[in-house]
Amino acid sequence: MTVVWAGLSVGAVYALIAIGYNITMTFGGTFNFAHGALVVLAGFFTWFVVVEQGMPWWAAALSGAVLGALVAVVEELVAIRPVINKDSHALLVTTVGALVVIEGVLMATWGDEPRSVPFFGGQESFTLLGGRISPVDVWLIVIAVGVGVGFHLFARRSLWGLAARGATSDPDAAKVRGINVAALRTGSFALAGALAGLLGPVLVPKTGASVGITITLTVFGFVALAVGGFGSFLGSIVGGMVIGLVQAFGNRYLGVEYPPLLLFGLLLLILLLKPSGLFGQRGVRTV
């Protein structure tokens, strides 16, 4: 059971990243390659506020949300808006560029040494349903499920969700009906960035703050997205948990070097056999 808890908690991290990808995709119609980098940025920022400045965790969460939203909006305005109507060729380069800029700035500011931040809710692990689990793991799993379900309902029920669904399925028709597609996109980036920043104090005790994990978060978050299905928030939760469990059981029974291979195989299989993912709608295949 300890392995299951470990899998679910690390899975929650990937689920939250997949949800971040999904936010800009469902509400903004754009894939944000740099979302993993935003999560890493939030981790470093939490370390800076909590460990370096000695401020409380909620200060890091709130200011992190503002910073995350700001950086994401700047990314959208600088790297996405100018090229969105050109071929996807350019968008590919500029969003990768955005990821690299965030990474490069982090490296130049805080170096490439990993930093760790203690969890504000305690470090002592306890036994739950026959397995050892630490407080941060519980928080992560609950938050991932809560955030995923929340966004699922928000996308279905809210006016924003409705407008955005129209805008992503047919931007031109949406424009005619008075929907500001560009504003929706900027808003979706702000939302995803704010979420990443807000969750910094919960994520960083689990992942640690280091530039080196950017690619892992980016790629595994994407695998979670692909498994769960593009455009499905509930799918992101399930996808993330599946990834986490594969990783945890792989680590436990095969060795730490095997999970990437297993997940790579899983990703290839999903893309070959069920490209829309477990819960994906056929319509949202912009990725």
């Binding site: 390659f33 892992t216 790629v219 070097e257 790579f264 295949r285 912009t286």
Partner: peptide, 23 residues
């Protein structure tokens, strides 16, 4: 598999390769 969807999935599937090096 990567080219079955759009550009992004190939970019990410191939990006994954870098993670496989140490493994």
């Amino acid at each position: 598999p990567g080219l079955r969807l759009s550009h992004w999935s190939l970019a990410l599937v191939s990006f994954f390769f870098i993670l496989l090096i140490p493994s």
